[in-house]
Design a protein around this nucleic acid. Sequence first.
DNA 1: TTGTAAGCGTTATCAA
DNA 2: TTGATAACGCTTACAA
Lengths: 325, 325
Amino acid sequence: MTIATVARHARVSRQTVSNVLNAPHIVREETRRRVQEAITALGYRASQAARQMRTGRSRLIAARIEPTRDGINGSVLDRFLHGLTETADAAGYRIMLYTARDDDHEIATYDDLLGAYDLDGFVLTGTDHGDPRTAWLAERQVAFVTFGRPWDAPDAHPWVDVDGAAGTAQATRRLLDAGHRRIAFIGWPAGSGVGDDRRSGWRTVMAAAGFDGTAPDRETEDGIDHGEREMRDLLAADEPPTAVVCVSDSLALGALRAVRDATAPVAVVGFDDTPVAAAIGLTSVSQPLEAAAARCVELLTGVLAGQPTEPHALLSPTLVLRHTA
Amino acid sequence: MTIATVARHARVSRQTVSNVLNAPHIVREETRRRVQEAITALGYRASQAARQMRTGRSRLIAARIEPTRDGINGSVLDRFLHGLTETADAAGYRIMLYTARDDDHEIATYDDLLGAYDLDGFVLTGTDHGDPRTAWLAERQVAFVTFGRPWDAPDAHPWVDVDGAAGTAQATRRLLDAGHRRIAFIGWPAGSGVGDDRRSGWRTVMAAAGFDGTAPDRETEDGIDHGEREMRDLLAADEPPTAVVCVSDSLALGALRAVRDATAPVAVVGFDDTPVAAAIGLTSVSQPLEAAAARCVELLTGVLAGQPTEPHALLSPTLVLRHTA
DNA sequence: TTGTAAGCGTTATCAA
DNA sequence: TTGATAACGCTTACAA
């Protein structure tokens, strides 16, 4: 069934049907109603392919689905993708999935996706210092939003992010309020934007409370085992910390293992509020992923529609209190 | 850049370029090489939209992304989707995402997706008795594969599934070998295909070992709290079980909580090998999700190509041994 | 306000 | 083996 079927059915020209679809206001009330009725009666749907050929717009947005690394932090992406799909749908867009082993491969995929499917835009997750992907896209004037700040230039492109520093700050404040004084931090090696951001929240609050530089700060790769090792190290000190803020739930989980054998109780806070945290009662900083996804779609569709919108959005996480702090 | 650009560059007609792309064998060796060179030199990619208009095929497969329910079992879908994207890509297809609140809404989405984007096929996850979705698709002769058996008719349509009974059977056998005799099962209420299947594996092995009907079998909704409650009930019996097989990691996690307070140690086995299981050391039955996704794509593309392929595939899960059994 | 004509990039058909 | 032509379903420009 084509637009011609609808036109015949409503006894108008094809063009009038197209107008009802794309510029309803220029069609006479009664004609529009008759056409609309024909459309619903026939269950007509405009062919995207034909529409795209003419307009050059596909109403398709690409998003990457990553291989679930350790699984713990992977589920974050899952929720984000679901939010993306839902909001995009409401805005008349569809999400197309792709994978890529590394940045080079990802860029090759952009090329492919753009050439073959004529994608309208991209939503990138996890940005890094000097990200080659954003440079590639920007150079070609492709519309995109990142979930994650451009760590080099604050306004290089539209982005949505969660204020990690605010999250760890909130956690640290909470621990101080509970009477803790020796609050350690287990984070990733300096250099990653996300990791440094989260560390800074803890550091700022500790400094403001007068514990400048004295609180133990560890750097390690992500992973349960690494978290356990670091925590054991911390506990072996003369004056071991009574609480620890971790940059991820994986590390927090490891810390929790080490803490189990400790003489005094130690409070532990994780980051990301993953299913694992919920399952074992780990207090964790929770990212508003659905909201973040919604803002991504909003920003991207705004750019696509040529509307001047907010260049970015920084969302606040919340601390989910459970048993470990 | 269009096919005409390539044609000019290689000094052939548009049609010849098209032939090189779609029927290379009918083009003379030397011409083909020249055209191929022009294609790579120009970085040409055929427009899917134009191709689709002519052929009626979009090379698009739709898959549903569900709202992460309790999160624990949700990550299974995540891995499946990733596998799907990867295999589909290799086969020249792309995955388009959609969500739906319920079956009716999902069917409406099929209609939309089919009408607007002319999707080639669907991959459905989680089938139930008398699934209205498969009936709708079959009636309209839409190509689809389900991850999950059609529980009513074994060969109603192509499907891929994991042999849940084999998984619980393996777990039960392992427990028997370890010397356990009173092995309970905590499952979902009878009536769900997946739940009944998993229960049957445990029951069969127990019956074969001579414990017919005597082993405690519980039915409950999924969830950590439900698992804990059922396990406490079981432990309160005169002769409490020394081991329990659970239909899901959520229930197993709850059981594990209850077990912690028990006088004698109790072995616990879960199902799905979710990140939570890995994190806390829960022994669990693991589904080969990447393989399942690959088979789904294989079956679906086979149907789309009109090739007579295996009508279905039943994959074997593996038992991942950790600390709890 | 409605209708006519052209063209988007591809492939199928058929003639050379 | 290669090339010309038409057609897929839609929207934009323009004429009625």
